[in-house]
């Protein structure tokens, strides 16, 4: 069975907006859900994985395609929905 992958488009947004959008999207997901974030600010390739490490989410894949980057993550135990 393949996991459903949710999508988030943060193209054209600059740091820290891609992280904020990711955080806010994750709050709406459940533990174990997967999310693919697409971005154009290459800084997000550092920031989103750092945010995942801090908040206990797993980074499954990162990559670059042309001017775009992406991060696939799996939501950890706490989706941070309190805030």
């Amino acid at each position: 069975m393949t996991d459903v992958i949710h999508d988030l488009d943060t193209r054209r947004l600059l740091c820290p907006m891609p992280v904020i959008k990711t955080q806010n999207k994750v709050r709406t997901l459940s533990t174990g859900d997967c999310l693919k974030v697409v971005c154009t600010d290459p800084g997000a390739l550092n920031d989103i994985p750092a945010w995942c490490r801090i908040n206990g989410h797993e980074v499954l894949e990162t990559g670059e395609q042309g001017n775009e980057c992406f991060v696939v993550l799996r939501v950890g135990e706490d989706n941070g929905a309190l805030f």
């Binding site: 820290p16 904020i20 920031d47 750092a50 801090i54 908040n55 206990g56 941070g80 805030f83």
Partner: peptide, 14 residues
């Protein structure tokens, strides 16, 4: 984010 990671704390960005 970097500081939070060094400190081992969660970070909420609002």
């Amino acid at each position: 984010l970097w500081v939070a990671e060094q400190l081992g704390i969660k970070l909420h960005i609002i």
